[in-house]
Design a protein around this nucleic acid. Structure first.
Lengths: 153, 153
DNA sequence: CCCTAGTCTATCGGCTAAGTAGACTACCGG
DNA sequence: CCGGTAGTCTACTTAGCCGATAGACTAGGG
């Protein structure tokens, strides 16, 4: 299961990716629009900033904004920042390899052999999907499920 | 990350799948051969029995054995028993669907749309891989990494 | 009847997830 | 240069789960 932290992060980033990128958005606004506890979101956004995903400005007219273009930020990197390694077992992690304690022979470990396939396929998806893809999918889905357009009176 | 519980379960089951299926194996033996705390393994095996994966016999000559053939037991079902739903978010779970709290429109949720692809690909692998596959992979890997055969003196 | 081996309930320490509190620092406008 | 705005940081708290252990109980075999 994804942690709340990562879920909130993805929601916030998807929001930032879907709006005008030139000007910052307030923590409070993100929190309200996505239904995230403001104080908790604060921590999350700061962490993302410290890892080079976001930028921030203080004072009036401040807030958070993406540091790079949405199409240059993939989901794997975000999840790794907040939830740590993606691998199901440490001996399969690319970013934080550790030998499983008590494992005698890594090459013939059944669990490892099977999970390797699984992990590789999820990695492939998470590393190739960007915030831009997410924003696009949302727009497409919204188009498909709504009656095309709404004309004001 | 996989929990220890599931890891131990997979190891134990892979072992049972790789030996003679007609006679039971002692908890103590499984524990020792796989390096699992015996008392903890007890809980795990019992849980697997209660869910129809294993059978057991008491008294002398007793122990645990697979209830079905290794090729009829897939990894997804095992993981679900011990770790609960496999889905990264409740709204994607097949076996324990729950609406994500605070999610206004499931159809246009960006997270859901992206994770759906990922989850589907892992499900496909876990549901189609059986204990027999694991045992086979282990044998193949052992063949490949060792000098073919060992002749006794 | 007794040894063997699984069954069950309870408990425990430690850790992490999720969220909260409150003080502090920096920027912008006037 | 002052005051409000808005992000920054440290330190809790609270609940729940993970991993493991203890000990009493039940049932089968010989």
């Amino acid at each position: 299961m994804l942690t709340m932290k990562t879920k909130y992060a993805l929601k916030a980033l998807a929001l930032l990716a879907s709006v005008e990128q030139s000007e910052p958005m307030l923590i409070a606004e993100i929190a309200e629009r996505e239904g995230i506890p403001k104080k908790f979101l604060e921590l999350i956004l700061r962490e993302l900033k410290q890892h080079g995903i976001l930028d921030s400005r203080k004072g009036r007219g401040g807030g958070y904004l993406l540091r790079r273009r949405p199409e240059d930020i993939n989901l794997a990197s975000i999840m790794r920042i907040l939830d740590g390694p993606l691998a199901p077992v440490p001996c399969l992690s690319q970013t934080a390899y550790r030998r499983c304690e008590g494992c005698e022979d890594e090459r013939t470990c059944g669990i490892r052999l099977v999970l390797k396939d699984m992990h590789q396929s999820t990695l492939k998806i998470l590393e190739s999907t960007t915030l831009a893809d997410v924003a696009l999918k949302v727009r497409e889905a919204a188009m498909g499920s709504k009656p095309v357009a709404r004309y004001s009176i």
